[in-house]
């Protein structure tokens, strides 16, 4: 769902950039306040892992492939949506500048979709469901699924505003493809949460590693 430069006019891209920068500033503040010896390894390892996962395009049938986003994973493990904004922003910059994956003028929109929307949807879905079900796999799966689907729908909305896609057709196609990609995102997110929580329970946000959770 990395929007290339050709899909959004520069003036609209600039507006997304400005909105994105507000969240990036908040994410930097999160990092300054929260970063410590315990979180630093997890944040950096998640960045490497999310970069690698995003390069892996999985076939999802219907002539389409998709890769995981990782916003829910970062937000859940680190206990803040701004963790997702922080990590995804830097990963997206590397992808755009070095690999042309996602545009430069559209980087703001990509940060909003995958970092901000993905991070917030993933974090609050997980938090809400964990409170109700106390079940990590169910909460993590649904949080990651929504954190893949909702940004895709937002992306379809931006494509409509840019005049690139018609609204209904864009929403249907983006929705269907990412609903499938989201299922894989859900499984991988739950598996990654489980593995990391098992290896280093102390690094992970306490809401995840509560005894009833895993």
């Amino acid at each position: 769902m990395h929007i290339p430069d050709a899909f959004i006019p520069i003036w609209q891209g600039s507006i997304y950039w400005i909105i994105a920068l507000v969240f990036v500033a908040l994410a930097l503040r999160w990092a300054r306040n929260e970063m410590n010896e315990e979180k630093l390894p997890l944040v950096a390892v998640l960045a490497a892992g999310i970069f690698a996962l995003q390069s892996f395009n999985l076939p999802v049938s219907m002539g389409t492939s998709g890769h995981l986003v990782g916003g829910a994973l970062a937000a859940i493990l680190l206990g803040s949506p701004f963790a997702a904004v922080f990590i995804l922003t830097l990963v997206l910059i590397v992808q755009a500048v070095l690999f042309g994956d996602g545009g430069i003028t559209t980087l703001g929109a990509n940060i909003i979709n995958m970092g901000v929307i993905g991070g917030f949807v993933g974090f609050y879905t997980f938090k809400g469901l964990m409170g109700m079900t106390k079940n990590m796999p169910i909460s993590g799966f649904l949080a990651a699924w929504l954190a893949c689907l909702i940004p895709a729908l937002a992306c379809a909305g931006e494509m409509f505003l840019a005049g690139t896609f018609p609204l209904a057709e864009g929403l249907v196609a983006m929705g269907i493809y990412h609903a499938i990609i989201g299922v894989i995102e859900g499984f991988v997110t739950v598996a990654a949460i489980y593995l990391i929580t098992t290896a280093r329970p102390d690094l992970v946000d306490s809401k995840v590693s509560s005894p009833a959770g895993v």
């Binding site: 970069f51 395009n57 002539g63 492939s65 896609f165």
Partner: peptide
């Protein structure tokens, strides 16, 4: 992470991603 990336180089699908695919549909 490197293992995932290495597997991706050989196994990743060449089909367009969700956004590109939607562009082709519209």
């Amino acid at each position: 992470a490197l293992l995932i990336g290495v597997v991706a180089v050989f196994m990743a699908s060449g089909d367009p991603d969700g956004l590109e695919s939607t562009a082709l549909v519209v």
